Simulated scan of single mutants.
Amino acid sequence: MSRLPERHRAAGGEFLRFGMVGVMGFCLDVGAVYALIPSLGLYGAGMAAYFIAASANWALNRLWTFHGRSHRAAHTQWLRFLAVNLIGFMLNRGAYSLLLALFILPRHYPVLAVAAGAASGFLVNFLLSRRLVFV
Results as ranks from 00 to 15, higher is better:
102 L>C: 13
106 P>G: 11
23 V>S: 03
76 T>E: 15
108 H>I: 10
58 W>L: 05
78 W>S: 11
55 S>A: 14
126 F>Y: 15
82 L>G: 10
121 G>V: 05
128 L>K: 05
117 G>Q: 07
127 L>E: 05
47 M>F: 14
13 G>N: 12
6 E>I: 04
55 S>G: 11
18 F>A: 00
67 H>R: 15
129 S>E: 03
99 L>W: 13
90 M>C: 15
32 A>E: 10
46 G>T: 06
55 S>P: 05
120 S>I: 05
72 R>I: 02
125 N>L: 04
18 F>V: 01
134 F>D: 01
124 V>G: 00
118 A>C: 12
70 S>L: 01
109 Y>R: 04
62 R>I: 05
19 G>C: 02
23 V>G: 01
44 G>T: 07
21 V>E: 01
51 F>W: 09
72 R>K: 14
56 A>N: 09
74 A>R: 09
29 D>H: 15
117 G>W: 02
68 G>S: 05
30 V>W: 13
24 M>T: 14
55 S>V: 10
75 H>N: 10
42 L>H: 12
69 R>V: 01
44 G>I: 09
65 T>F: 03
68 G>I: 04
112 L>V: 11
128 L>W: 06
60 L>W: 10
72 R>W: 00
61 N>W: 00
112 L>M: 11
77 Q>L: 06
50 Y>I: 03
135 V>F: 02
41 G>S: 15
89 F>A: 11
114 V>C: 06
60 L>I: 07
123 L>H: 06
43 Y>G: 02
85 N>T: 13
